[in-house]
């Protein structure tokens, strides 16, 4: 049985003269949590945006669930994207919609689902993130941590097999950051998803990672478990964990 769900080969991306990603090669297995670590501006977010074709790579191949992204037409791409959840750094909630409408929005195309079924699904994912009471609130009424939770609930509503987290704990206090990190683990065990977590929060990486990579100057500089990298002989790698 095929267990690799993401395969990146020789990925390159530049913005003008700025080579953000250079020859990145990566594989992610089913159910695995991969943490991508690196300094700000090292290309971590660009990497996951290339994965879902929000940014088009200059060179290289991205294979998601056995399908090469560059070979897909718009309909095939949209169908494939439904298997991937994306939690944005700012949560990216639709600010003109209530929490309920935010969660129902990705289900609009699924005409087969009855209203009651959608309602149950919305409650289920909100319960998973502990925010059932916020269902009729507007995003502007939510705190940063609550917004992240609702953002995560929205990614869960389509039952994705892979979730991409872009700086899930940025801008949150240490306690809320820890709660979000634990929530990522809960989601992994409950929904059996694989995840790519972009972060520079050591605590988040410690809690969530099965495996880590560190990006430096656009290349995959180091790879290993949290323990291996935190005890690395490389001074620069170790400096991240101090």
């Amino acid at each position: 049985m095929e267990t690799t769900i993401v395969e990146i080969e020789h990925l390159n991306k530049s913005f003008g003269n700025n080579h953000v990603l250079r020859d990145i090669n990566l594989k992610i297995e089913k159910g695995e949590n991969l943490v991508v670590f690196g300094k700000s501006g090292s290309g971590k977010s660009v990497l996951i945006k290339c994965l879902v074709d929000l940014i088009e790579p200059d060179e290289g191949k991205v294979v998601l669930f056995g399908k090469t992204m560059s070979d897909l037409n718009d309909d095939e791409l949209n169908a494939l994207r439904k298997k991937v959840g994306f939690l944005f750094q700012s949560a990216a909630l639709y600010d003109s919609m209530t929490v309920r409408e935010n969660l129902e929005f990705p289900l609009r195309d699924l005409k087969t689902k009855a209203k009651e079924e959608i309602e149950a699904l919305v409650f289920e994912v909100l319960k998973s993130v502990g925010l059932e009471d916020a269902i009729d609130k507007m995003p502007s009424e939510l705190s940063g941590g609550m917004r992240k939770r609702v953002g995560l609930a929205r990614t869960l509503i389509l039952k994705p097999e892979l979730i991409l987290y872009d700086e899930p704990t940025t801008g949150l206090d240490p306690i809320t950051s820890k709660e979000i990190s634990k929530l990522i683990l809960d989601v992994q065990s409950k929904y059996h998803t694989a995840s790519i977590i972009i972060t520079h929060d050591v605590e988040c990486a410690r809690i969530t990672s099965n495996r880590m990579i560190i990006i430096k100057d656009g290349i995959c500089y180091a790879e290993g478990t949290f323990k291996e990298l935190s005890e690395s002989k490389d001074e620069w790698v170790r400096s991240f964990f101090k």
Binding site: K49, V52, L54, D74, N78, A79, L80, R81, K82, V84, F86, F88, Q89, S90, A92, L93, Y94, D95, F105, P106, R108, D109, R154, T155, L158
Partner: peptide, 18 residues
Amino acid sequence: ASMKVTEQIDAMEVSGMN
């Protein structure tokens, strides 16, 4: 523009919407 810079349009795109 506000939706674009707060990544709301990207969020629609990655959830398979048009």
